[in-house]
Design a protein around this nucleic acid. Structure first.
Length: 414
RNA sequence: GCGGGUGUCGCCAAGUGGUUAAGGCCUCGGAUUGUGGUUCCGAUACGCAUGGGUUCGACCCCCAUCACCCGCCCCA
């Protein structure tokens, strides 16, 4: 038997209906906040991610689905299934000169992402994200707006007790200075660091700070090292930006905590980063992660444009929300019980044109079997027997109450 | 990529070296050729994740593989 690939999942039935509800809510919440939907391709040039997400990130280093396409000829090029969607949206933003609309330019998206990781609870190789990206606003209001929208959406799907964590990474300038002072103090211990950290040392030394390796931890505990790590490195402008964000959140009554160790593994973030977590999720506790990325647009060839965004994992949202045992969405409005397949088919078609959910029996099954099926699949049954067809009326039976009444015109059905 | 656990029908499961692998739900058929959801009767694993091995004999023991779950790492 051919089975679904590791880390992928079929979604159907009630689960699909609940998913639909989540995405619908996202659409409502984000469009009413002025976000436009954007659908970008599922695969992009590999270079977009290595440059955009950053080649020191785990995502780019070991988790990408990368293919060489174009066959044996010299035009072969490398493409990658998107591991996240910010880079793709930024690419589209630049490619279509979306900066010519007046700022902010606000987009939301929903779709599958792909990362070659070991699957476990809350993590799959193909998973889905709902996210937003907002361009053109450097003020802290945009950071607050992003968090506000995320929280509003989570509230809309019934999740109101999640923990918001924020941090500031500083800007290019202060982050750069911090980086060099960390490299300087760690230089004598370089040989003792784990292999990952040796690589991080060159490419993104900040990530050494949250390495869980014992040897690395020991080095980070050294007095001289601690002194450098824990100094408040961000510059005055960044500090002010962060303070402003906190003030907005306070005024908006959004509860949050500050997590100085939250560094996040995507290279493009600067200044604000945030996560929204739930302790109910186990070790993959973040349902939402995001932050500011003021240099990404320029890095990918656009003009300098401040931006902020976030993404949420739909599978994780799904596992957190309260699920109904059954959904009326799955039920038909009418099941047509008839031994005359053609008449049933015609009636069903007329009802469907009016957006009434209707179905009928195609196997000429016995009357009682058809009614049994109706009771399972529909709210009401339309009985269309010889009598009804001949005299031109419908017998409509409410399958919950058992009441049956005579309906004389089609219009009364819809 | 590394540790630990699990794997019996569509779902939930009992079984544990020895004749035909319990049971429940769902599904299908019948009792009931125009009135269902209750009830009664019947059917459905040539098979116990997959592939090897040990044994007179294996769902049960051993090995490998795969998948899922729990951690690590990382992320949503």
């Amino acid at each position: 038997m051919i089975k679904a690939q590791r880390g992928t999942k079929d979604i159907f039935g009630l689960e699909a209906a609940i998913w639909q509800g989540i995405v619908q809510k996202a659409k409502n919440v984000f469009t009413s906040a002025g976000f436009e939907e954007i659908k970008t391709p599922i695969f992009e040039a590999t270079e977009l991610f290595s440059r955009g997400v950053g080649d020191s990130s785990d995502i780019v280093n070991k988790e990408m689905y990368t293919f060489s396409v174009g066959g044996a000829d010299k035009t072969a090029s490398s493409i990658t299934l998107r591991p996240e969607n910010t880079a793709g949206v930024v690419r589209a933003y630049i490619e279509h000169n979306l900066n010519r609309q007046s700022p902010p330019q606000k987009f939301w998206y929903f779709g599958p992402m792909f990362r070659y990781e070991r699957p476990q609870a809350g993590r799959q190789r193909q998973f889905h994200q709902i996210g937003v990206e907002m361009f053109g606003i450097k003020e802290a209001a945009a950071d607050a707006e992003a968090i506000l929208c995320a929280v509003s959406f989570l509230k809309a799907i019934g999740l109101n007790s999640l923990e918001v964590e924020i941090n500031s990474l500083g800007c290019k300038k202060c982050k750069g200075e911090y980086r060099s002072s960390i490299k300087e103090v760690l230089a004598p211990y370089l040989e003792k660091l784990c292999d990952d950290c040796k690589m991080r040392y060159e490419k993104n030394p900040l990530r050494i700070l949250d390495c869980k390796n014992e040897e690395c931890q020991k080095i980070l505990e050294l007095e001289e090292v601690k002194k450098v790590i824990y100094k408040d490195y961000i510059c005055d402008e960044c500090k002010e930006h962060f303070e402003e964000l906190k003030k907005y959140l306070d005024e908006l009554n959004i509860k949050y905590s500050i997590n100085k160790l939250m560094v996040r593994g995507l290279d493009y973030y600067n200044r604000t980063v945030f996560e929204i977590k739930s302790s109910a999720l186990g070790s993959q506790s973040a349902v939402c992660g995001g932050g500011r990325y003021d240099t990404l647009v320029e890095m990918l060839g656009g003009s300098p444009t401040p931006a902020v965004g976030f993404a949420m994992g739909v599978e994780r949202l799904y596992s957190l929300i309260e699920k109904p045992l059954e959904s009326d969405d799955l039920k038909l409005d009418y099941y047509i019980v008839s031994t005359n397949t053609l008449e049933a088919m015609k009636l069903a078609s007329k009802l469907r044109e009016k957006n009434v959910k209707a179905d009928y029996d195609m196997q000429k099954r016995k009357f009682s079997k058809q009614l049994e099926k109706a009771a399972k699949a529909a709210k009401k049954a339309i009985i269309l027997g010889e009598d009804e067809i001949e005299k031109g009326f419908y017998s409509v039976k409410d399958l919950k109450t058992g009441e049956q009444r005579r309906v004389n015109s089609f219009d009364e059905l819809v």
